[in-house]
Amino acid sequence: MSNAAAQTGSPPREAIALENLSVYFGTGANAYAAVAKVNLRVASGEFVAIVGPTGCGKSTLLNAVAGLLRPAQGRALTLGRVVNGVTHEAGYLFQQDALMPWKTALANVAVALEVRGVARAEAEDRAQQWLARVGLAGFAARYPHQLSGGQKKRVALAQTLIRDPSILLMDEPFGPLDAQTRGLMGDLLLQLWQADRKAVLFVTHDLDEAIALADRVVVMSAGPAARIVSEHPIDLPRPRNVADIRLDPAFHALQRAIWNDLRTEVMKAFGEQGDGVLQAGASA
């Protein structure tokens, strides 16, 4: 896989740019501001993770970049172009199962190429290669319900990456998996990403995962009208191993620094859910 930016010669420096972006749900007096005035830039080849309390609008940001949501104010740009409709340069890995249950693993991956006009035989050939890259060479004929949660995620990863998108949007993709599988999926993702360095915007509520994977961690405030609280460059050496890096002292220093910001927001979000008692604990 060659870098998409390298093919075009002069790569746009910014893969993703959010400019003063606000998204509302509903209209009129009942409008709910999910995110307000967010500014964020992701360089091409950069891996950025967004962390924040639940319900803070992390996924909303991704959907705005993907073109699945229309911003109320401001704009999102991908590769220098304003997002207006579904962004075809971006691949999107969803938290929930998004595979078509009536297609086999192979057909699910191949269809990503077929819809672009690649002939079926070639599409299946390349899909088979991608299944092998995510470690599922022997599972091509299985239907999604015959795969485990981690295997389904790997098929989804192959389905997204086979199109060679220059931007990868990931919405807590490993959230539903158990801790061990999550670590392994992180390693697989890093290994695939290392090969051609796409720009990644990775949303998670798991700070450890964010630090282990990303070049930069962005902390979002509690909703409504969530905004970016702080940004932290992660200068841990690559290639990384998700399980081992957690033992690194530098990892702990970063974890402490970011958690300091994140904790305030998490407690705020918790308090808004009507549990006032815990706010007292937050200040302790």
């Binding site: 075809h88 929930q96 998004a98 595979l99 078509m100 269809v111 819809v115 672009r116």
Partner: peptide, 24 residues
């Protein structure tokens, strides 16, 4: 989610009909 994913894979209305709505 399946629908949003299919859109992100670049399916147009006709392809959505064939690969998503029809089998469903």
């Amino acid at each position: 989610v399946i629908l949003a994913n299919a859109r992100m894979l670049g399916m147009n209305e006709r392809q959505l009909l064939r690969h998503v709505y029809w089998p469903s």
